[in-house]
Simulated scan of single mutants.
Amino acid sequence: MFDVGIGEMAVLVVLALVIFGDKLPQAAGQAGRALRQLRQMANSAKADLQEGLGPEFKDFDVADLNPKTFVRKHLFEDPDEPGHTANGAAIFDDEPYATAGAGLDYGERPPFDNEAT
Rank of each mutant, 00 (worst) to 15 (best):
P82W: 03
F70A: 13
E95V: 14
F70I: 05
F76R: 12
G52F: 09
D80C: 10
V62A: 12
G88H: 07
A90T: 03
P111G: 08
G54V: 01
E115Q: 07
T85H: 11
A100W: 14
P111H: 14
P111E: 11
A90Y: 00
A63W: 06
N66Y: 07
D64C: 04
E51P: 02
A98K: 03
A89Y: 04
T99P: 02
L65Q: 08
E77N: 15
A102R: 15
A63P: 01
A63N: 06
F57V: 02
D93G: 11
Y97K: 07
A116R: 09
K68P: 00
E77L: 12
G88I: 07
P110L: 09
E115I: 02
K73S: 11
T69R: 13
P79H: 05
H84Y: 00
Y106S: 15
T117A: 05
D61Q: 07
D80R: 15
D78G: 14
T85C: 08
H84C: 07
T85K: 13
D105G: 12
T99D: 00
A90H: 01
P79C: 04
F112G: 12
L104A: 10
A63T: 05
L53V: 00
P82S: 05
P111M: 09
L75F: 13
L65T: 10
P111A: 11
D64G: 06
E51F: 04
P82V: 04
P67D: 05
E108Q: 15
G52N: 14
K58L: 01
P82C: 07
E95I: 05
K68R: 05
P96W: 06
R109P: 11
N114A: 10
